[in-house]
Design a protein around this nucleic acid. Structure first.
Lengths: 363, 363
DNA sequence: GTTAGCACTCTATACAAAAGACTGCTAGCG
DNA sequence: CGCTAGCAGTCTTTTGTATAGAGTGCTAAC
């Protein structure tokens, strides 16, 4: 299924398809044969191109909205284009500089970097962008604190080794003083520091460890395990969405129902939770074109996603969402560049000793 | 300016205006004189109503899209309606029950309650809804922790007395061991517990207090003050937005530019930060109709907002966003009911001893 | 003050005609 | 055999025009 190049088409036909895609992406109007020969260095007549187009249509790569209209790429056509015809490009240096410039900020925390990245990406490609907050795939306990909030209510504040923080309220059967809580926290912190969720669960399973514990210990331990597990799962991760306005301006989303559809999609996070885990495990930029695997209603939507992050730690997904008629090359290069930049920023935030490459900028 | 009833109009003309507003809100079509007399118990002829309408138009309360169309309320007309004509209603018992039912959830934290409230409100009024996360207007320090993350980097985790948590990274000139950090934290916690931002700043200003302090103390203290201050300001507060799809379905937002406008507004938080602080200090439901005080582009948007919360602590704003042509009465009663309900929920979460009134529900 | 009646204005709809856009095909050419 | 000029055929888009419809404003009478 990855190998989509089992179509029997000539080099010139490939070129014609390429021109159709690029032209249509630019203008949103069906592309006519005359339009193809003029100005694209194709030394044949429009009639020849028409024959090629008939062939391409037979192959299912382009379609005709109606008899007397030009041609439009089909879903298959876009896929073929992206996989076989598109030349991967790199963002122009001045664009790179413009992008880097937008990250030229005072110190921010990881979540804010990511949100900014989504916003910058959205502006760069003039389309909607999504990004998930960075999450560790394996969170180890750095430290936790037990705080008596009021009678029978205890708050757990947990800090992961990567700096993520989580809080949760715990309801007790009896009152506990702050001193008792502090003593327990100190004891457990010493024993559990650096452990991951499963390791803590194991530790708590050993009867020897649990011998001289106060009655609230089991509740605290199981809550700690639950909180760590929750941090590892990406489902709870915040999803940042930016630049919806761009996408709704595209002519293909002018009809109210389409608009409604894409909005539901965007607001309702469930679509993302299904595809993000699969993207985060892979390297490189991934392009999904009208992929119904993402769910119904995605048949008119394309997504260009990439993973960003630091190895196992603090990984997330960043990408562009738009209509099928999307400038794929530009999207891919933008996503690629910005995800890389974001990874660098996060890395430097973790190891500030590395000199900051932006420091030399004159503007 | 509050007193908009300095128009010289007869009781029947008021009634006509009232019918026009209600009818237009329901149908989105200009209202004709014939339509007004039929079925509204108005014992006059359409000609009489036409005379009244001419009068109302002269007063600027209604306008005519074109010569042979019915009348539509003007911005002024809506204001007059809301302030003088609208009978305040209460949500029907079965609707109240339906709403309460949606809050019938397992334990959630405050932020999740609020987000749910925005979502429920949005569904109830079939329009977009916004809500700000609850924030204390005066946050007192409950506890903080200093954690050594790596060389020269220290994380501060702060817990407010209301349970809010904030974290921040601090960059040091020299290395500090976890023991030194722990000692300082313990010392400062003992001295500062229960203090608000300004009190901490005062305390740090006393030379006597700062005498035997390690070099990192001033940085920590000023960061604590900054974090607390930041928690108090609502600008940083997360704004939840729900049900944008509803609003974009309204006929008045069908034109692309309008859509663009309202989206910018919705995504860009800056509009809210200017009006929310003024709303949060006042009791009751507030209606803003095409208020340009909110900024340009709001001229076609109405907002119905109310404060929710527990006195000084954990207060926020909840409301409906929609076109001028909005069912104001229903919006006001919904916002009123749900904000009250939300306040109750938060109160109970703080004082779990109060019996839960939802407990008796059969469904 | 109210009302019936009617002329007037502007919109909405329907339909037809014309113009325009592309194609597909055919026949001829190198 | 591939390429091309030319043209008929098909469908959309635009334009024009007639008609129906909606609603008002005004006048004259009650």
């Amino acid at each position: 299924m990855d190998q989509t190049d089992n179509y029997n088409i000539s080099p010139r036909q490939r070129q014609v398809l390429s021109i159709i895609v690029e032209e249509y992406v630019g203008t949103a109007h069906p592309v006519a044969s005359e339009q193809i020969v003029s100005g694209h260095g194709l030394n044949v007549s429009s009639a020849t191109v028409r024959n090629d187009m008939a062939e391409l249509e037979r192959a299912g790569l382009i379609v005709q909205p109606h008899t007397s209209a030009g041609r439009v790429p089909s879903e298959q056509g876009y896929r073929y284009f992206v996989e076989n015809l598109m030349h991967p490009t790199v963002l122009a240096p001045n664009e790179q500089r413009k992008i880097r410039h937008q990250f030229h900020q005072v110190e921010m925390d990881a979540d804010e970097w990511v949100r900014l990245a989504a916003s910058v990406l959205s502006r760069t490609v003039h389309s909607a962008a999504v990004a998930t907050a960075p999450r560790s795939t394996a969170v180890h306990l750095k430290h936790f604190e037990l705080l008596s909030i009021s009678d029978k209510r205890v708050m757990i504040v947990l800090v992961g080794h990567d700096g993520t923080v989580a809080q949760q309220m715990l309801y007790m059967d009896q009152d506990w003083s702050q001193e008792e809580l502090g003593a327990l926290a100190q004891h457990l912190n010493a024993a559990l520091e650096g452990k991951a969720a499963t390791e803590i669960a194991d530790w708590a399973g050993q009867p020897a460890n649990m011998q001289p514990m106060p009655a609230l210990a089991p509740g605290v331990l199981s809550t700690l395990v639950a909180m760590l597990t929750n941090l590892e799962r990406h489902e709870t991760s915040q999803i940042y969405r930016e630049g919806l306005a761009h996408i709704l301006n595209q002519p293909e989303f002018r009809q109210p129902e389409r608009m409604q559809q894409i909005l539901e999609l965007f607001e309702h996070g469930s679509v993302w939770t299904s595809i993000i885990p699969s993207v985060i495990t892979q390297e490189g930029v991934q392009v999904m074109i009208g992929d119904t695997a993402m769910g119904e209603g995605m048949s008119e939507v394309s997504v260009v996603l990439a993973r960003y992050g630091l190895g196992e730690e603090l990984a997330g997904v960043l990408g562009v969402v738009g209509p099928l008629r999307m400038p794929y090359s530009r999207s891919v290069s933008s996503v690629s560049y910005i995800s890389q930049l974001l990874s660098d920023l996060l890395l430097k935030a973790h190891n500030p000793s590395i000199p900051n490459s932006q420091g030399g900028d004159t503007e």
